[in-house]
Computed example of a mutant assay.
Amino acid sequence: MMVRGVRGATTVKENDAALIESETETLVRAMVQANQIDPEQVAQVLITATGDIDAGFPAKALRNLDGWNYVPVMCAQEIPVKGSLSKCIRIMMTINTDIEQRLINHVFLENAVSLRPDLLKEGK
């Protein structure tokens, strides 16, 4: 087993708690599906949000997933770089897996697809 990072990011249209939670849940579910992740494999989940997202905690979304009760999750604020993507939620999920690093499927949704087009695989 190796420790691998799975990246994910999405954006929200509004700074709304319900929207922040639902978009984060959609992203996490997509990351889990794309990499066949079981919560027992997950060492931790780090979530950052840009400063214009403060109506709710994105990490709350993980409470909606079966089996994720004991997965350590932390939220932080993304550094405010001029010209960076606004209303953006980023996730770094650390997992234990036998999958080679180059085969990890990173997931970028909504306007976040512009962040790392080099990591997006064709057909995704």
Rank of each mutant, 00 (worst) to 15 (best):
V81T: 12
C75H: 07
D38E: 15
K124V: 12
H106Q: 06
V12D: 01
K121N: 09
N105L: 05
A55L: 08
L27M: 10
A55I: 11
G67L: 09
M1F: 12
L85Q: 12
V28Y: 04
T97F: 07
E25D: 10
A30G: 02
I53M: 00
R29A: 08
L46Q: 09
T94G: 04
I20H: 01
W68P: 01
V107W: 02
V73C: 09
F57P: 04
I20G: 03
S84W: 08
P58F: 09
A61P: 03
V113R: 09
G83D: 13
R29S: 09
A49Q: 07
V42A: 04
N69Q: 15
Q41P: 06
A43W: 01
I99M: 08
E110Q: 08
G8I: 14
I95S: 01
A34T: 04
G51A: 10
G67V: 10
L65G: 03
L46K: 10
R90H: 06
E23D: 10
M1H: 11
M93L: 13
S22E: 10
T11Y: 04
K87Q: 15
N15P: 04
M2S: 09
E110R: 11
M74S: 15
R63V: 05
Y70F: 13
A30W: 00
Q44Y: 13
G83T: 13
N69H: 14
V71G: 03
A112R: 02
S114T: 14
I47P: 00
L115D: 04
V6C: 03
I89V: 14
L103W: 05
E23K: 15
I20S: 03
V107E: 01
L65R: 05
E100I: 11
I47Y: 02
S114D: 06
T50M: 00
G51D: 02
R90V: 09
V113Y: 04
E21Q: 13
E122I: 13
K82C: 11
V45Q: 03
I53A: 02
V42P: 00
Y70N: 11
K124F: 09
I99S: 05
K13I: 14
F108D: 01
A55E: 10
G67H: 09
N69T: 15
F108N: 03
A9H: 07
A59W: 01
K121S: 11
D38M: 15
D52T: 07
L27N: 05
T97K: 05
N15Y: 10
G83W: 12
I104S: 03
G51T: 06
M93I: 07
L119F: 07
A76G: 15
